[in-house]
Design a protein around this nucleic acid. Structure first.
Length: 206
DNA sequence: TGAGAAAGTTCATTACATCA
DNA sequence: CTGATGTAATGAACTTTCTC
Protein backbone atom coordinates (compact mmCIF):
# COMPACT_ATOMS: atom_id res chain seq x y z
CA UNK A 1 0.00 0.00 0.00
CA UNK A 2 1.43 3.38 -1.02
CA UNK A 3 0.80 5.75 1.90
CA UNK A 4 1.71 8.93 0.07
CA UNK A 5 -0.61 8.11 -2.80
CA UNK A 6 -3.39 7.43 -0.34
CA UNK A 7 -2.79 10.75 1.34
CA UNK A 8 -2.75 12.65 -1.90
CA UNK A 9 -5.92 10.88 -2.99
CA UNK A 10 -7.48 11.89 0.28
CA UNK A 11 -6.33 15.48 -0.18
CA UNK A 12 -7.83 15.50 -3.67
CA UNK A 13 -11.04 14.07 -2.31
CA UNK A 14 -11.14 16.69 0.42
CA UNK A 15 -10.26 19.48 -1.97
CA UNK A 16 -12.45 18.53 -4.88
CA UNK A 17 -15.30 16.74 -3.28
CA UNK A 18 -15.49 17.85 0.31
CA UNK A 19 -14.97 15.74 3.39
CA UNK A 20 -16.23 12.20 3.06
CA UNK A 21 -18.90 11.42 5.63
CA UNK A 22 -17.55 7.95 6.33
CA UNK A 23 -14.37 6.20 5.27
CA UNK A 24 -15.22 3.34 2.87
CA UNK A 25 -13.63 0.81 5.13
CA UNK A 26 -15.74 1.98 8.05
CA UNK A 27 -18.91 2.26 6.10
CA UNK A 28 -18.87 -1.48 5.50
CA UNK A 29 -17.68 -2.60 8.92
CA UNK A 30 -19.52 -2.91 12.18
CA UNK A 31 -19.86 0.21 14.31
CA UNK A 32 -17.08 0.61 16.82
CA UNK A 33 -17.93 -0.16 20.42
CA UNK A 34 -17.92 2.76 22.82
CA UNK A 35 -15.33 2.70 25.57
CA UNK A 36 -16.50 2.14 29.13
CA UNK A 37 -16.48 5.49 30.90
CA UNK A 38 -15.78 3.89 34.28
CA UNK A 39 -12.23 2.91 33.49
CA UNK A 40 -12.16 -0.38 35.39
CA UNK A 41 -13.48 0.99 38.64
CA UNK A 42 -12.09 3.01 41.52
CA UNK A 43 -9.44 0.51 42.56
CA UNK A 44 -7.18 1.13 39.59
CA UNK A 45 -7.87 4.85 39.23
CA UNK A 46 -4.35 5.81 40.28
CA UNK A 47 -2.95 3.27 37.84
CA UNK A 48 -4.96 4.60 34.92
CA UNK A 49 -4.73 8.27 35.91
CA UNK A 50 -3.43 10.19 32.97
CA UNK A 51 0.09 11.44 33.44
CA UNK A 52 1.57 14.22 31.35
CA UNK A 53 5.04 13.38 30.11
CA UNK A 54 7.87 15.64 31.22
CA UNK A 55 9.54 17.97 28.74
CA UNK A 56 12.73 15.86 28.82
CA UNK A 57 10.74 12.73 28.06
CA UNK A 58 8.95 14.42 25.19
CA UNK A 59 12.22 15.85 23.85
CA UNK A 60 13.85 12.44 23.77
CA UNK A 61 10.77 10.85 22.20
CA UNK A 62 10.71 13.62 19.58
CA UNK A 63 14.39 13.03 18.89
CA UNK A 64 13.79 9.32 18.30
CA UNK A 65 10.69 10.02 16.24
CA UNK A 66 12.73 12.37 14.07
CA UNK A 67 15.14 9.56 13.31
CA UNK A 68 12.51 6.92 12.60
CA UNK A 69 8.74 7.01 12.79
CA UNK A 70 8.42 3.29 13.29
CA UNK A 71 9.17 1.75 16.64
CA UNK A 72 10.63 -1.77 16.74
CA UNK A 73 9.99 -3.62 19.94
CA UNK A 74 13.67 -3.58 20.96
CA UNK A 75 13.89 0.18 20.57
CA UNK A 76 10.60 0.60 22.40
CA UNK A 77 11.85 -1.33 25.43
CA UNK A 78 15.18 0.52 25.43
CA UNK A 79 13.45 3.90 25.19
CA UNK A 80 10.96 2.94 27.88
CA UNK A 81 13.64 2.03 30.41
CA UNK A 82 15.66 5.10 29.43
CA UNK A 83 12.64 7.33 30.10
CA UNK A 84 11.27 5.41 33.06
CA UNK A 85 8.04 4.75 31.21
CA UNK A 86 5.98 1.70 30.45
CA UNK A 87 6.79 0.31 26.97
CA UNK A 88 3.08 0.58 26.27
CA UNK A 89 3.26 4.34 26.93
CA UNK A 90 6.13 4.68 24.47
CA UNK A 91 4.16 2.74 21.86
CA UNK A 92 1.09 4.92 22.45
CA UNK A 93 3.16 8.07 22.22
CA UNK A 94 4.52 6.96 18.83
CA UNK A 95 1.04 6.06 17.60
CA UNK A 96 -0.31 9.47 18.53
CA UNK A 97 2.77 11.20 17.17
CA UNK A 98 2.40 9.39 13.83
CA UNK A 99 -1.24 10.50 13.71
CA UNK A 100 -0.26 14.12 14.38
CA UNK A 101 2.48 13.93 11.77
CA UNK A 102 0.06 12.53 9.23
CA UNK A 103 -2.48 15.28 9.93
CA UNK A 104 0.23 17.90 9.53
CA UNK A 105 1.29 16.41 6.20
CA UNK A 106 -2.32 16.38 5.04
CA UNK A 107 -2.72 20.02 5.98
CA UNK A 108 0.50 20.91 4.17
CA UNK A 109 -0.63 19.01 1.09
CA UNK A 110 -3.96 20.77 1.20
CA UNK A 111 -2.31 24.19 1.46
CA UNK A 112 -0.03 23.42 -1.46
CA UNK A 113 -2.92 22.28 -3.62
CA UNK A 114 -4.90 25.36 -2.69
CA UNK A 115 -2.11 27.76 -3.56
CA UNK A 116 -1.51 25.92 -6.85
CA UNK A 117 -5.20 26.22 -7.62
CA UNK A 118 -5.23 29.93 -6.78
CA UNK A 119 -2.27 30.45 -9.08
CA UNK A 120 -4.03 28.67 -11.95
CA UNK A 121 -7.19 30.74 -11.41
CA UNK A 122 -5.10 33.90 -11.53
CA UNK A 123 -3.39 32.78 -14.73
CA UNK A 124 -6.76 31.95 -16.26
CA UNK A 125 -8.02 35.46 -15.48
CA UNK A 126 -4.89 36.95 -16.98
CA UNK A 127 -5.29 34.90 -20.17
CA UNK A 128 -8.96 35.75 -20.44
CA UNK A 129 -8.16 39.43 -20.18
CA UNK A 130 -5.48 39.01 -22.83
CA UNK A 131 -7.97 37.29 -25.11
CA UNK A 132 -10.42 40.15 -24.61
CA UNK A 133 -7.76 42.70 -25.55
CA UNK A 134 -6.81 40.69 -28.63
CA UNK A 135 -10.44 40.43 -29.65
CA UNK A 136 -10.72 44.18 -29.42
CA UNK A 137 -7.62 44.58 -31.57
CA UNK A 138 -9.01 42.10 -34.08
CA UNK A 139 -12.26 44.00 -34.22
CA UNK A 140 -10.37 47.23 -34.86
CA UNK A 141 -8.34 45.49 -37.57
CA UNK A 142 -11.46 44.27 -39.30
CA UNK A 143 -12.98 47.75 -39.22
CA UNK A 144 -9.76 49.20 -40.65
CA UNK A 145 -9.74 46.60 -43.42
CA UNK A 146 -13.32 47.45 -44.24
CA UNK A 147 -12.52 51.17 -44.36
CA UNK A 148 -9.53 50.57 -46.65
CA UNK A 149 -11.62 48.30 -48.86
CA UNK A 150 -14.34 50.90 -49.23
CA UNK A 151 -11.77 53.56 -50.07
CA UNK A 152 -10.21 51.35 -52.76
CA UNK A 153 -13.64 50.48 -54.13
CA UNK A 154 -14.53 54.15 -54.43
CA UNK A 155 -11.21 54.84 -56.20
CA UNK A 156 -11.73 52.15 -58.90
CA UNK A 157 -15.32 51.03 -58.82
CA UNK A 158 -15.01 49.43 -62.26
CA UNK A 159 -12.42 46.92 -61.16
CA UNK A 160 -13.99 44.17 -58.97
CA UNK A 161 -10.69 42.34 -58.61
CA UNK A 162 -9.25 45.24 -56.69
CA UNK A 163 -11.75 44.86 -53.89
CA UNK A 164 -9.92 44.45 -50.59
CA UNK A 165 -11.37 41.74 -48.34
CA UNK A 166 -10.23 39.88 -45.24
CA UNK A 167 -9.87 36.71 -47.29
CA UNK A 168 -7.54 38.43 -49.77
CA UNK A 169 -5.29 39.90 -47.14
CA UNK A 170 -1.85 38.53 -46.53
CA UNK A 171 -1.49 37.76 -42.85
CA UNK A 172 1.71 39.88 -42.48
CA UNK A 173 -0.61 42.85 -42.88
CA UNK A 174 -1.83 42.17 -39.37
CA UNK A 175 1.56 43.18 -38.10
CA UNK A 176 0.47 46.74 -38.41
CA UNK A 177 -1.97 46.08 -35.59
CA UNK A 178 0.54 44.37 -33.37
CA UNK A 179 -0.76 40.91 -34.15
CA UNK A 180 2.44 39.25 -35.34
CA UNK A 181 2.63 35.67 -34.28
CA UNK A 182 -1.13 35.33 -33.97
CA UNK A 183 -1.64 34.37 -37.65
CA UNK A 184 -2.82 30.92 -36.73
CA UNK A 185 -5.69 32.37 -34.75
CA UNK A 186 -7.38 33.13 -38.06
CA UNK A 187 -7.17 29.55 -39.26
CA UNK A 188 -9.30 28.23 -36.39
CA UNK A 189 -12.87 28.07 -37.52
CA UNK A 190 -15.44 29.75 -35.30
CA UNK A 191 -17.02 27.47 -32.68
CA UNK A 192 -14.22 24.98 -33.22
CA UNK A 193 -12.70 25.58 -29.80
CA UNK A 194 -15.00 22.89 -28.44
CA UNK A 195 -12.59 20.42 -30.01
CA UNK A 196 -9.61 21.76 -28.10
CA UNK A 197 -9.35 20.53 -24.52
CA UNK A 198 -9.56 23.40 -22.07
CA UNK A 199 -10.42 25.96 -24.76
CA UNK A 200 -14.21 25.55 -24.78
CA UNK A 201 -14.57 28.90 -23.02
CA UNK A 202 -13.10 30.60 -26.12
CA UNK A 203 -16.43 30.17 -27.91
CA UNK A 204 -17.87 32.69 -25.49
CA UNK A 205 -15.85 35.27 -27.32
CA UNK A 206 -16.66 34.09 -30.86
C1' DT B 1 0.12 -23.65 0.63
C1' DG B 2 -3.49 -22.44 3.81
C1' DA B 3 -5.07 -21.68 8.60
C1' DG B 4 -4.76 -19.45 12.65
C1' DA B 5 -2.36 -17.19 16.45
C1' DA B 6 0.31 -13.28 17.91
C1' DA B 7 1.92 -8.84 17.52
C1' DG B 8 1.76 -4.81 15.11
C1' DT B 9 -0.76 -0.76 12.90
C1' DT B 10 -4.47 2.63 11.94
C1' DC B 11 -8.57 4.97 13.06
C1' DA B 12 -12.02 6.90 15.88
C1' DT B 13 -12.98 8.11 20.18
C1' DT B 14 -12.79 9.17 25.16
C1' DA B 15 -10.95 11.32 29.23
C1' DC B 16 -8.11 14.27 31.45
C1' DA B 17 -5.03 18.54 31.94
C1' DT B 18 -4.42 23.08 31.03
C1' DC B 19 -5.34 27.64 29.71
C1' DA B 20 -7.82 31.92 28.35
C1' DC C 1 -16.73 28.07 36.28
C1' DT C 2 -16.65 27.05 31.41
C1' DG C 3 -15.51 26.06 26.78
C1' DA C 4 -11.66 25.15 23.70
C1' DT C 5 -7.62 22.73 22.80
C1' DG C 6 -3.90 19.35 23.16
C1' DT C 7 -2.71 14.85 24.15
C1' DA C 8 -2.45 10.22 26.73
C1' DA C 9 -5.00 6.23 26.53
C1' DT C 10 -8.43 2.83 24.84
C1' DG C 11 -10.88 -0.46 21.79
C1' DA C 12 -12.07 -2.32 17.37
C1' DA C 13 -10.74 -3.50 12.91
C1' DC C 14 -7.33 -4.49 9.88
C1' DT C 15 -2.46 -6.13 8.43
C1' DT C 16 1.76 -8.54 8.77
C1' DT C 17 4.61 -12.14 10.34
C1' DC C 18 5.44 -16.51 12.05
C1' DT C 19 4.55 -21.34 12.93
C1' DC C 20 2.69 -25.67 12.01
Amino acid sequence: MNKLEDQMALISQIYLGGYPQVAPQQAESKPRRRRNKNKGGENNLSMTKKRKLSQEQVDLLEHHFGNEHKLESERKDRLASELGLDPRQVAVWFQNRRARWKNKKLEEGFSKLKSDHDEVVLEKCRLESEVTKLKEKLCEAKKEIQRLGERVDRGSSNSPSSSLTMEAMDTPFLGEFGLEGYDNVFYIAENSYNNIPGMEWMNMYM
